[in-house]
Structures are given as structure tokens and as C-alpha cells.
Simulated scan of single mutants.
Amino acid sequence: MNPDLDLTLERVIRAPRAAVWSAWTDPARLCKWWIPAPMTCRVDRLEVRPGGGFVTEMSQDGVAFVPHLNAIFLVVDELERIVFTNAIDSAWRPAKPTPVPMTAEITLGDHPDGTDYRIIVRHGDPADRARHADLGFAEGWGLVTKQLASVAESVAR
């Protein structure tokens, strides 16, 4: 972790890793938490494998959708780690994503209360990191992680 380039988030999710993994890899579950409520999400592509596409759209009214994320998965270690980047789009073309290019690494570990959930979002330069932080990284990623926890915990019951 490089504090000049990276943003992090950690949380214990009170559900087994399999439930958290399923919330990440099942489009029907991912759309329930991936975008901060009250906005809604539509999953266009979720090919959870190295090189697979990760494409989502968002909507304020549930009717008109606009692009949200067009990325690829770089690393997928089942039940342990997912790494994706928006610096390359789902067609394997270099991208200029908004608001910032990033590579996100999500790791899942065992915890006595469920799953140790950790995120590192890497940026190419301090300006992109600062922009992402200023745009509300902690609040936005924190909210979707809370929503993820709710989905995973409801599956685990």
C-alpha cells in the first residue's frame, strides 16, 4: 500500500466468505449493492475471470440508465481476491475513465465474526488519488460496502 497513491477500506462482514463472494459474482446480487442507494444498478456484463468484462449502468429513476463502469477483471482467486481496472475497458481497449483511472483489489479473509473484507484502490498519481478522495471515496465505497454486507448477511441467514 502506498499512502500517496492508494485509498483503502476495511470492514468485517458478518457472513461467510462464500456469501460475500456470491454477492460479488452473481449479477442479481451485485446489482443490489454496487451503486449507492437510492440509485439503481443494471449489470450488463459480469464475467468474473481474468480478462472478463465488468460493465454496469446506473439510474436515478430506475428507467433511464447511463454508463457507470466499463472495466476488466485482472485477477480472480475464488473466495479470496478480485482485482479489476477501469484503465482498460471490457473490449480490452485503453480507456480514459471518469472520474479517475484506478485498479481495485478486493480481498476476503476469514474472521471469527465472518469475513475480513479489504479494499485497496490504486491510482497512477497523487492527483488522481486526491481527486478520488475529494469526490467521496470513503463515503461512496463505504456505503456500497455497507450495502454489500446487507446482501451477504441476508444470504447467510
Rank of each mutant, 00 (worst) to 15 (best):
N2A: 07
P3D: 14
D4F: 05
D6N: 03
D6E: 07
L7W: 04
L7A: 02
T8R: 11
L9D: 07
E10R: 10
R11W: 00
R11T: 01
R14I: 06
P16F: 05
R17D: 08
A19T: 01
A23C: 02
W24N: 14
W24H: 04
T25R: 01
D26V: 03
D26H: 08
R29E: 13
R29I: 05
C31T: 11
K32C: 06
K32W: 01
W33K: 08
W34R: 09
I35T: 12
A37G: 09
A37L: 09
M39Y: 11
R42I: 03
R42N: 13
D44K: 09
R45G: 09
E47W: 00
V48K: 09
R49C: 12
R49I: 07
P50I: 02
P50D: 14
P50F: 11
G52N: 09
G52R: 04
G53N: 04
V55L: 01
T56I: 02
E57T: 02
Q60I: 03
A64H: 12
A64N: 15
F65S: 02
V66H: 11
V66E: 15
V66R: 09
V66S: 14
V66P: 00
P67S: 08
H68N: 10
H68R: 01
L69N: 14
N70R: 05
I72K: 08
L74D: 15
L74N: 10
V76D: 13
V76M: 10
V76Q: 07
E80T: 01
R81S: 09
R81G: 11
I82Q: 12
V83F: 06
V83I: 09
T85C: 14
T85S: 05
N86D: 15
N86C: 01
N86F: 02
N86G: 10
I88S: 13
D89K: 06
S90T: 02
A91T: 08
A91P: 06
W92M: 11
R93N: 10
R93A: 10
R93C: 06
P94R: 06
A95D: 04
K96R: 07
T98L: 14
P99K: 03
V100N: 13
P101Y: 06
T103C: 09
T103Q: 15
T103D: 13
A104L: 10
E105C: 14
E105Q: 11
I106L: 15
T107C: 07
L108K: 09
G109A: 15
H111T: 05
T115A: 14
D116H: 09
R118Q: 13
R118I: 00
I119T: 03
V121Q: 13
R122A: 13
H123E: 01
G124I: 03
G124D: 10
D125C: 12
P126A: 12
A127N: 09
A130Y: 03
R131L: 15
H132L: 08
A133D: 05
G136K: 04
G136S: 04
G140K: 00
W141K: 08
G142K: 00
L143R: 14
L143K: 14
V144C: 13
V144L: 06
T145D: 15
K146N: 13
L148F: 05
A149F: 04
A149T: 05
S150C: 08
E153P: 04
S154N: 13
